[in-house]
Design a protein around this nucleic acid. Sequence first.
DNA 1: TTTGACTCTCGACCATGGTACAGGGCTTAT
DNA 2: ATAAGCCCTGTACCATGGTCGAGAGTCAAA
Lengths: 161, 161
Amino acid sequence: MIVLEVMHMIKNMDKKYNGITTYKIGEVARRADVNKETVQYYEKRKLIPKTDRRRSGYRIFTQRHIDQIKFIKRAQQLGFTLTEIKELLELRLDEETSCSEIKEEAQQKYQDVSEKIDDLLRIKETLTGLIDSCSEDGTIGDCPILEALEGKNKTGKQLRK
Amino acid sequence: MIVLEVMHMIKNMDKKYNGITTYKIGEVARRADVNKETVQYYEKRKLIPKTDRRRSGYRIFTQRHIDQIKFIKRAQQLGFTLTEIKELLELRLDEETSCSEIKEEAQQKYQDVSEKIDDLLRIKETLTGLIDSCSEDGTIGDCPILEALEGKNKTGKQLRK
DNA sequence: TTTGACTCTCGACCATGGTACAGGGCTTAT
DNA sequence: ATAAGCCCTGTACCATGGTCGAGAGTCAAA
């Protein structure tokens, strides 16, 4: 059974460009757990590197594409928009971008991420409290989660727009 | 100048029900930094407690409503959908819900939140690395953020749906 | 060499989370 | 008592992030 599956997976891989394993869109979608259309959509939005094509027009994907799509999916669950995710993915040092540019960008993102972590830690604590208080006496009438993010109005600044 | 603003804020508060300060929708929207329509939308979706009404039909809000709206906004930035946020807000112990019910729910949420925190910590580390490497030698060609969430395929289970 | 499964493009459609009126009724300072 | 400025309901519209289908071409195992 498992052998058949593995064979199927191998079947769906093409060894093409100098020993690098490549994939067609269906296999990429399956491996990244998204629809084909989503892959195409991400390509259009330039969230994944532009694919090479075979003479037929079929897109040629690599493991890199799969990893990047998985990253995008995770980042979305963390509250980043596709636009923000694009910015994150473009954060790199190369001959085009200067150090100070990158540094500023990265430091801004670092701030955002830190604040998200803090918020989530507060929620986590509240949940712990809730779970613990279950082992105790009786009922808590009000909404305990509400206080989780209170009293930390973060300098009045908005994270988004 | 500030005095005028404070007076304006006081003007927009009604002391109504046994000494509790109440607000009209415009003031709530201003204080929670959303549109009036959003407040109405949240009421329709039962994300905030049903408001009392004056004889005129005007909604009567309290500080509780404002806090809850702020919570909703923050939770959204952390990647929770409105449906998930509703579940979070309903997590409480009262005469209606049994301890074991709550506990199970809360433990599931705890899991989700912990995973989000882990992911964000990984991203944060990557950003630190990026910022630090700026002070050093030259250029890094590839996309450093991509590895951030790799190699932790969390037991194949999906967070959402 | 055929045939079933796959791929292409492109345009329409969908769900979520709002946002914007229109037409009418309150409220309140003057 | 009146006008500016609120609030009400309801419906239509919007942006984001997909999702679906038609019509036509490609691939590969038998």
